[in-house]
Amino acid sequence: MKQMHDSLIVQTMSRLLIPLAQLFSLYVLFFGQYGPGGGFVAGVIWTTSMILTFLVYGLKSPQGRLVELVLHGDGVGLIIFVGVGGLCLIGGGEFLNYANLEILGMDAPSRRYVGILLTQIGVAVDVAVTGISIVLSLAYHDTEQEYDV
């Protein structure tokens, strides 16, 4: 977990699989309004791709640094979700009533589409950051330090 995995097969396959998983996650996120899927599943699939990244390349590599950087986004998803609800309030409707999103030149179906899409993105970001945070806090402590005790 600390260094890069030494097997060439694992490195090559993960180089292929990680973008594929992330692409599928985006597909599930944006297609969730019309088919199965949605923010939660998209966030979890993104999490698994990130976990694969730091399991294979290690936390010290540039890719691993990127995974660590994601942790700074804790709470951003919730802010997006609540922010969309607040924008609906500002638009003159109830909290989370997407028909009241005030976006110029948009009819009611598009407003609802944008509102639901933004809240799904909020859920996805929240779930992804939480999953990575849990796995990192499980995996990321110094084992050598504990042996001395």
């Binding site: 969730g32 309004q33 019309y34 088919g35 199965p36 949605g38 804790d74 709470g75 998803g77 919730l78 979700f81 609540v82 609800g85 909290f95 989370l96 997407y98 009611a108 179906p109 609802r112 589409y113 639901i116 809240t119 799904q120 909020g122 859920v123 929240d126 779930v127 939480t130």
Partner: peptide, 26 residues
């Protein structure tokens, strides 16, 4: 005005429910 019933129940009829679930995960 959303074609998928699951999405409309999850994000629209029960938007508060989903919001609180997100808070729980956070």
């Amino acid at each position: 005005l959303t074609p998928n019933v699951v999405t409309s129940v999850l994000m629209d009829y029960r938007g508060f429910d989903t919001l609180i679930e997100t808070v729980v995960i956070f």
